[in-house]
Design a protein around this nucleic acid. Structure first.
Lengths: 157, 157
DNA sequence: ATCAGATTGACAGTGTGCTGTCAATATTCT
DNA sequence: AGAATATTGACAGCACACTGTCAATCTGAT
C-alpha cells in the first residue's frame, strides 16, 4: 500500500499549490495576450523594451538565458514591434526599443491585464492576500538559502 | 513616470511570488532528479506508472496534452524504465508499466525527494505553512471560477 | 446491429526554454 | 600598454510543452 507516488505532507501540498497556481496564472496571462497576437514571452520583452535596453540586460533581469530572450526579441524585431538601435558606447550590442506599433500593442495588453487584475481582486480580501504574499516571500528566502547550501556542498568554488 | 512595465499592486506581487516559487521548486525538482539521469517530466510519468495506466489517462490526470506524455513515455520505454503492456480490453492502447529498473530509479528519486523535503521543512513552521496552503487553494478556486466565466463569455458552447 | 461520435496513438509542426561553443568586443588587472 | 577575463550576439542542438490531423477502435444511442 506504500506507493511512491509522492508524499502527502504539508510541504508537498504546498508545492502542488504553487504548481497549480503557476499553471493558472500562465494560462490567464496567455489568454490576456493571445487576442493581441502575442504570448507571455513576447509580452515580457515588450514590457522591458519600454525602457530601451540590451538583450543581455533583459535576460539577466528576467532570470532567463540570454539566448532565449534574443530569439524572442529577433522575432519581435522582424514583426516591427521593436527595433535594434546602436548602443552608444558598446559596439558589440544594440538597444531594444519599442516601435510605435510595439507601444500600441503593449498598451492594449496593459489595459486587458488591468481589467483582469481588477476582476480577480474584486473577490479577494487584500489583507489576506498580502499576508500570503508575505508568507510566500519568507518561504522563497528559505528555499534560496537551501539551494545555496546545496550548491556549496556540491561545488565549493 | 507611468511606465507599463507592470503594476505593483498586491495581486501582481502575488503573481510574481508564484512565478518565482514555481521556478525555485522546479529547479529543486530537477536537481533532485538530475543525478539519477532523469528530469521532472520523466519523474512524473515514472511515478504514475507505478500503477500501470494508459498514456491518455496519465495525461488527463496531469493536465497535460496526451502527446506530450506519449513522447516522454516512449523515451522511457526505449530506455527500459517502463514497458508497454497490452491493454486487457482496449486494442487501441497499452498500459504503461514500471520495469524493475524503473522501480529502482523511482525509489532512488523518492529517497532523495524525502530528504530534501525534510531539510526544507525543518526551518518552516507547519501551522503557518498550512494556513498558506489553505489561502492558496482559496485563491486557486476563485481563479478557476474566473477562468470559467471568461470561457463562457467568449465561447458559449 | 448499425451508425454517429468519442477516444487513442502516430505523425507533423510550432513556441519557449535550456546548454554549449565561437569570434568580436569591453573591461579589469598588472 | 598589454594581457587575462568577461560579456555579447550568432549559431547549433536538445527537452518539453502545445496544436492540429488522421486512421483505428471503442462506446453509446437508436
Amino acid at each position: 500500500m506504500e506507493k511512491p507516488s509522492g508524499p502527502d505532507d504539508v510541504w508537498s501540498k504546498f508545492a502542488m499549490s504553487i504548481f497549480d497556481l503557476n499553471g493558472l496564472l500562465m494560462r490567464a496571462g496567455e489568454s490576456i495576450v493571445r487576442p493581441l497576437g502575442q504570448s507571455s514571452a513576447r509580452w515580457q520583452v515588450l514590457g522591458r523594451a519600454f525602457q530601451p535596453q540590451t538583450v543581455a540586460t533583459m535576460a539577466r533581469d528576467m532570470g532567463r538565458a540570454r539566448q532565449s530572450v534574443q530569439r524572442v526579441a529577433d522575432v519581435l524585431a522582424q514583426e516591427g514591434l521593436v527595433i535594434y538601435r546602436d548602443h552608444p558606447t558598446d559596439r558589440r550590442t544594440k538597444l531594444v526599443e519599442l516601435t510605435p506599433r510595439g507601444l500600441e500593442v503593449l498598451t492594449a495588453i496593459y489595459e486587458r491585464q488591468l481589467e483582469w487584475s481588477r476582476s480577480v481582486t474584486a473577490t479577494l480580501i487584500p489583507a489576506q492576500l498580502s499576508s500570503i504574499v508575505e508568507g510566500l516571500s519568507d518561504i522563497k528566502a528559505r528555499l534560496e538559502a537551501e539551494i545555496d547550501l546545496g550548491a556549496k556542498a556540491v561545488q565549493p568554488r
